[in-house]
Design a protein around this nucleic acid. Structure first.
Length: 460
DNA sequence: GTAGGGTTAG
């Protein structure tokens, strides 16, 4: 007879949950902590366990399961959950572009015997920003006093929102407004503004702001420096960028992989590959581990040089060094191969992604679709299109136009009609593209006589 | 782990 395992304690469960990487296994553990036990008495989960499981499910976008746990948490009268749990849930929904879910979560916080403060309001503001719901952001901000006094974080999100819509003037207005309200700008405020100035190639103003920060009692941190370094690199001022890196060292700021990835990319773009390897060496010397972004910069560099052998070698090196290649790196290779007309190889590589433990994302599909389309491999492109629509992704409108135009040039009526069908079903075509397709059909007698195509177009 | 930076596509 198998010896009975002693039942697991809530405390032990929470530490198991913390260590469990797989969200599905975590959920099983949470729902059935004592599989051997016959006791059907419900397990008294700790608040920490709830916290862990909700975070894991949210990160994995397993929202139905997460909502189920939240429902269970609501029934627990033993404790009142901390607000941070809801802040996290709101930001998960924001990242997943589900603004209504984010709003609902915020509205229901009091049902959990938890007091809302400006923190969850800020989380919602940021989630709405990520979803591009600017009108809803405005609404929330106007009524934010119900939940607390706007703090630096609130204003920083608003500044970020202004930057997103390209209004630096608006950002400065918020910057002034926060000071009128007695809220001091902090490192994040300046980091956001400097970054935006650099994006707009307004380096001079960015550097002036870096200097002016001191008057607010804020010193430039690594993020401010990284923005400036990237800005300089973008203007081709590499030696200034390197000088800034040395200034970071002088100011005892830790150099991280972000700084180095920027420099490596810039060196490759400037055709100074050898120096890029020198930078990589320096990283090793100071104990800064290259991460996926660093390696991706190298992969991108090699792809631009059409040196795919080296690009693939970097992938191997990543695996060797224990750095998991990510979807961005794979997308770079797919795009690079397509650009060189090697779209069959790109497709083979794309199909190999699952085996390599990577799920293709919307960029992977779009890149491959565009590549096949450019190579006139319309049949293959159509297969990719169907698959991406099935996955809930959509091609860029310009890609569809180009693709349909190619089919039209080839007089490939059959594929034209079946693609229209897919596009209609997937509901991924905007009105302009649809109009263009109709026009193309009508212009072509041979095609317009085909009732099959007309039927497709008439479809609701 | 309420907010800001680095790699891809556009």
């Amino acid at each position: 007879m198998k010896p009975l395992k002693p039942p697991i304690s809530p405390f032990r469960l929470s530490s198991l949950l913390r260590l469990q990487k797989d969200p599905t296994l975590s959920l099983q553990l949470f729902q059935n902590p004592n599989p051997d036990s016959n006791r059907k008495k419900s397990f008294r989960h700790s608040l920490l366990s709830y916290d862990f499981i909700i975070t894991k499910l949210g990160r994995a976008k397993m929202f139905d399961e997460m909502e189920q746990i939240l429902h269970q948490l609501k029934q627990e009268i033993r404790f009142a959950p901390a607000e941070i749990i809801f802040c996290n849930v709101i930001s998960f929904y924001g990242r997943a572009r589900l603004p209504d879910h984010a709003i609902q979560t915020f509205d229901r916080i009091p049902d959990f015997r938890c007091q809302r403060t400006v923190k969850s309001a800020n989380s919602l503001l940021d989630a709405l920003l990520k979803c591009g719901e600017f009108e809803k952001m405005r609404e929330l901000f106007l009524g934010i006093d119900k939940h607390g006094t706007p703090d630096a974080c609130t204003y920083n999100i608003l500044i970020h929102a202004c930057c997103r819509i390209g209004s630096l003037d608006g950002a400065w207005n918020v910057f002034d407004e926060m000071q009128r309200r007695g809220v001091q700008p902090n490192a994040v405020t300046f980091g956001t503004l400097v970054h935006q100035l650099c994006l707009n190639f307004r380096l001079k103003e960015a550097f002036k702001l870096k200097k002016d920060m001191g008057a607010y009692g804020v010193t430039p941190n690594a993020l401010v420096y990284t923005s400036l370094i990237k800005g300089l690199c973008g203007m081709g001022k590499l030696s200034s960028a390197f000088m800034l890196k040395e200034e970071m060292v002088k100011n005892k700021l830790k150099l991280d992989s972000a700084v180095y990835s920027t420099l490596i990319r810039a060196l490759f773009n400037a055709g100074r590959k050898e120096e890029a390897f020198g930078v990589l060496e320096e990283m090793k010397e100071i104990g800064c581990k290259p991460d996926a972004v660093t390696y991706n910069a190298l992969i991108s560099g090699f792809c631009k040089e059409k040196d795919f052998e080296e690009a693939f070698r970097i992938l191997d090196e990543m695996v060797e060094k224990g750095c998991k290649p990510d979807v961005v790196g794979y997308n770079v290779i797919i795009g690079g191969l397509c650009k060189e007309g090697k779209c069959s190889e790109a497709r083979d590589f794309f199909e190999d992604l699952p085996r390599r433990g990577c799920a293709p994302d919307v960029v992977s599909y779009r890149t491959l679709f565009d590549g096949l389309s450019d190579c006139m491999q319309f049949k293959e492109a159509a297969v990719v299109l169907d698959e991406m629509i099935f996955k809930g992704f959509a091609p860029r409108p310009a890609s569809i136009t180009k693709f349909m135009d190619g089919l039209y040039q080839e007089r490939n009526l059959e594929l034209f009609s079946s693609v229209l069908n897919s596009l209609g079903k997937g509901n991924v075509v905007d009105l302009d593209t649809w109009r263009m397709a109709v026009l193309m059909v009508c212009k072509e007698d041979e095609l317009s006589n085909s009732s099959k195509v007309v039927d497709t177009l008439m479809m609701p």
